[in-house]
């Protein structure tokens, strides 16, 4: 179990977390790892809190990740970063898209949206990498490419070649969005973090 690496991709249903996990899974497969990816479909996808688990190593058994086990969490939204923090290992890395999407209890005033999430996370003994992925996605040409920007940032943490990522992106995303996704990924990969 010690050699298995655990990555969680968390966000809000509709943000494109599934495509990210598939891209990562295919890259890991190409690198020769045993890989398991666990997704959520159905009702919770409708704007709810969504999580995808990606595990890789020499031999992976369980497809899910438990509290205190994730080496890295890629959070597509601030509140989701806070929600899933307990799943991060001590000293793990939390890459956060500094975007706020209010959940319905906040919209209906049943609960407040926590203030200063990034500052609070920074004091929790984990490595927080925050960036405005939405702005970079818009720069790449489409706000929906947030997922690829974040994958670009995450790619800095994996020792894979550019060629591997480029081939995997081509294999994973639909042809008509290939250029957009490549641009967004490159912007994330070039981010100084």
């Amino acid at each position: 179990m010690s050699e298995v690496k655990n990555v969680m991709i968390v966000g809000v249903g509709g943000q494109g977390t599934l495509l990210s996990s598939r891209l990562l899974g295919n890259a890991l497969l190409a690198e020769g790892y045993d890989v398991k990816v666990s997704e959520v479909h159905g009702m919770s996808q409708r704007g709810g809190s969504v999580v995808t688990y990606v595990r890789f190593g020499e031999k992976v058994y369980s497809p899910v990740i438990d509290k205190g086990q994730a080496d890295l969490i890629l959070a597509f939204e601030r509140l989701e970063a806070a929600r899933w923090l307990p799943y991060l290992k001590e000293g793990g890395t939390l890459i956060v898209n500094d975007q706020r999407i209010s959940p319905m209890p906040v919209i209906t005033r049943a609960a407040p949206y926590p203030d200063d999430i990034l500052e609070k996370l920074a004091g929790k003994g984990v490595n927080v990498v925050a960036l405005d992925a939405l702005a970079l996605a818009q720069k790449a040409g489409n706000a929906k490419a947030v997922n690829m920007v974040l994958m670009g940032v995450m790619s800095q943490r994996l020792n894979f070649t550019d060629e591997l990522w480029q081939e995997t992106i081509q294999k994973t995303v639909p042809a008509k969005f290939l250029d957009l996704n490549r641009k967004a990924f490159a912007l994330g990969r070039a981010q100084v973090t």
Partner: peptide, 11 residues
Amino acid sequence: SADFGELTPAR
């Protein structure tokens, strides 16, 4: 595991 320390509103 770390805890955020305050309630995170459900989504």
